[in-house]
Design a protein around this nucleic acid. Structure first.
Lengths: 125, 125
DNA sequence: ATAGAACTTCTACAACAAGTAGAAAAGTAT
DNA sequence: ATACTTTTCTACTTGTTGTAGAAGTTCTAT
């Protein structure tokens, strides 16, 4: 399902950081501060607003973003939190295969001790 | 990184089912039995072997497949097990964000009771 | 050793996703 | 009404994937 491109991802990251819905113009400004590829040598021209709007439309079509059409410069917000979205993606990757448990075993083996501790608590011993 | 197309995925699934390395021809045969979209009405022409070879080359480039160039019809095998691959993908999705624990919390909330039990055991006492 | 078969590599094209943005249309404010 | 802002439409470019023919290479059987 939802595999995001670099710009789409950058936009989602900004939306996730913002509790309130924000406009395409604000997003463009925020994006121009946040250099895409951490390449300090080049100061690239900021994106056109239409570019941001196109991306937002696509994200809306994908169900990741919704917009307030009521407020005049439309305002956009993420539909789900980053955590929920990531967790959903992980589930999607995990899938409904018969080897789910084996996958989980491998997965668990890689989390940090601190996280393992957290998980243990969450699972309620 | 590795987002696979439908055919690439189908090929990987077959390779994962096979312990031994197999040829492109065998794969083509297996693929023609396994209908891609479960659409029983249409009996589509089997793929050309070159198609399978192209896909295998791409999977090789992605590091998911390796081939025995020694045996004459080259034989292909998956580099990692499906479980390992899936677990890696999950980790990739989880990423190195600061909200990893929050994501894990959401994630854990969705696994089945049986799986939760398994996880509990895996995490130790 | 050689012709034909089998196999691999090269090249190519169509379809689609994603980055990018101008042109045109629609809404707003004075 | 008119100038300005915002949104939608349309479009081009690049990269990925499905698809496979053409060309090149390597066997194999005689």
């Amino acid at each position: 399902m939802a595999t995001l491109g670099d710009l789409e991802r950058a936009v989602m990251d900004l939306l996730w950081e913002h509790q309130e819905a924000i406009t395409a113009n604000s997003l463009r400004d925020l994006l121009s501060q946040r250099p895409s590829t951490e390449d300090s040598t080049v100061e690239s021209r900021p994106l056109a607003v239409t570019t941001v709007l196109t991306v937002l439309s696509r994200l809306e079509k994908k169900g990741l973003v919704e917009r307030e059409r009521s407020s005049r410069p439309h305002r956009y917000r993420a539909v789900t939190s980053r955590e929920d979205h990531t967790a959903e993606l992980m589930l999607e990757v995990l899938g409904s295969a018969p080897d789910r448990e084996a996958v989980l075993a491998r997965f668990i083996g890689t989390v940090s001790p601190g996280e393992a501790e957290t998980l243990r608590k969450l699972l309620g011993h």
